[in-house]
Simulated scan of single mutants.
Amino acid sequence: MAKRDVVFPPGRHALYDSHHYSPAVKSDGFLFVSGQVGAREDGSPEPDLDAQVRLAFQNLNSVLGAAGCTFDDVVDVIVFIVDPEQHFERMWSIAAEHWGGAPYPTATAVGVTWLSGFQFEIKVVAKLPAE
């Protein structure tokens, strides 16, 4: 197997090391980004729900930027939400602040019972810019 082409953002949070995963991997013209949460630099969750969602997008944009991408390059999105019946509309309206205009990426929302202390997680695949 070839060595993974890993992308690390500047000022990455502690979860990558403590949970043993890479922020993103480049492969065949795409960037596969691990789920991003509203983690502070020490890996702890941002306690305010709205701020946690915004921080997840900030962390996502940091990873995308480290690979030379923006959210406009995202082709597929999966979001994980704890208690979506109560929080989906609120979180989705915050996500829309970062989404940009049409055409939109594909999207899947999944309700979960646990996200290691977080309430929201976003995972994406982006098309890498032509080199």
Rank of each mutant, 00 (worst) to 15 (best):
N59D: 05
D76H: 11
G117I: 14
K127I: 13
Q58D: 12
R4D: 02
L115C: 09
G101E: 14
G117E: 05
H20T: 07
V79A: 12
Q52I: 10
E131Y: 07
I81V: 15
R90T: 11
E46F: 06
A107D: 06
I78R: 10
F118P: 04
G68L: 08
D5W: 08
F30P: 02
H98V: 01
W92T: 03
S34Q: 05
L15K: 08
Y104N: 12
W114T: 10
P84G: 05
Y16P: 00
T70F: 04
E85D: 14
I122T: 11
I122L: 11
H98M: 06
P23F: 00
P9F: 12
M1C: 08
A51T: 12
R12A: 09
D76F: 09
T113P: 02
A66V: 08
G117C: 13
S27W: 06
D42C: 10
H98I: 05
S18P: 00
Y21M: 07
H19G: 00
H20E: 08
F32I: 07
T70S: 15
P9K: 10
I94P: 07
P129V: 14
I78D: 04
K123T: 15
A96S: 14
H13G: 05
G43N: 01
S62W: 00
Q119K: 13
R54C: 08
Q36F: 04
F71T: 13
A24Y: 01
V37A: 03
T113Q: 13
I78A: 13
A14G: 04
G65F: 13
P10T: 09
S22M: 11
H87N: 15
A126Y: 04
G38D: 05
G43V: 11
H98R: 02
H13C: 13
D28M: 08
G68C: 03
V25N: 00
A126G: 03
E46W: 05
L128Q: 03
P10M: 06
W99G: 11
I81L: 12
S93V: 04
E41R: 13
Y21L: 04
F80L: 11
P103N: 10
V33F: 00
L55T: 06
K26C: 00
A67H: 07
F71R: 09
G101C: 09
Y104P: 03
W92L: 10
L15G: 03
R12T: 01
F71I: 12
F71H: 11
A14H: 15
A39V: 03
T108G: 06
Q119E: 10
W99H: 14
H98W: 12
I78H: 09
F8G: 01
F30K: 04
S34H: 11
Q52T: 07
F57T: 09
D17V: 07
E85W: 12
F32V: 06
G117H: 10
S22H: 14
N61S: 08
C69V: 04
F88W: 13
K127D: 01
V53K: 10
